[in-house]
Amino acid sequence: MENTVEKLEEEGRRKFLRLFGGVVGGGGIAIAAGTLLTEAAATEAPAKTDIIPAIPGYDWTKHHWAFGVDATKCIGCLRCVEACKVENNVAKDPNHFRTWVERYVTLEGEEHARIDSQQDPVNIAAAGAEGKYRFANRYKDAKVEKAFFVPKLCNHCTHPACVQVCPTGATYKTEDGVVVIDHTYCIGCQYCVQACPYGARFFNEEKRVTDKCTWCYHRITKGLNPACVEVCPVSARVFGDRNDKQSPISIFLRNNRVNVLRPESGNAPNVFYVGIDKEVS
């Protein structure tokens, strides 16, 4: 009796193993075949450069945008900050900025610079009205050893940390080198806000999405300069196409020894600075 039972059990086990092996093996083959097929399909599909986004009169494979800031020219008038808010419908309050300007002031006898921006309550009070920005002349009677202004904005990095962490593919880098946000796909998790080493991103509470500088992608694709570059009265902001050797940015990069902010972060920024001090990061 014992023998027959054992025999039967053994046969069942064998049967199951055979079937299971078959299913797993077959599945594996199917997956492999599927992968091969999709890969084959992918190679048959037209190359990436043949399909471009439907932007009238604009081919994103032909451009490589970059931005320059000459801090030795900046006068801290904040026209760029106001223009950016207007151009991009950014909330007029003093907490949301796509671009901003920092002031670094070292007083005599002090080791570190004092840093403020248009966001500082003293400067907001000097401006008077919401959406109007102005640096208060708070150091006019102080013994200033060194002072300068630094415009800041999204660095549109070559290896953007913010894009890497986005769980939905809502933020990405375009072929022409601009990091943008698809607001219909952004779920507002703000992981990217934390990932950016430059504090360039902010959360739009009204729309429940993240927002940031786009180098005015809607302008540059129409042959215009970004709004901040357009209004800068002293040409402290420079923008252009690196593929064009005579563009303002190409000339700027040729004629200056430039720095980027936080090079150690590995993001490889594309905003190039002239005339910034060791404190600026």
Binding site: P53, E87, D182, Y217, H218, K222, L224, V231
Partner: peptide, 12 residues
């Protein structure tokens, strides 16, 4: 979304 973002109308 690329073309959507680029379709915005410039103000300046």
């Amino acid at each position: 979304s690329v073309a959507e973002i680029a379709s915005d109308r410039p103000k300046f």
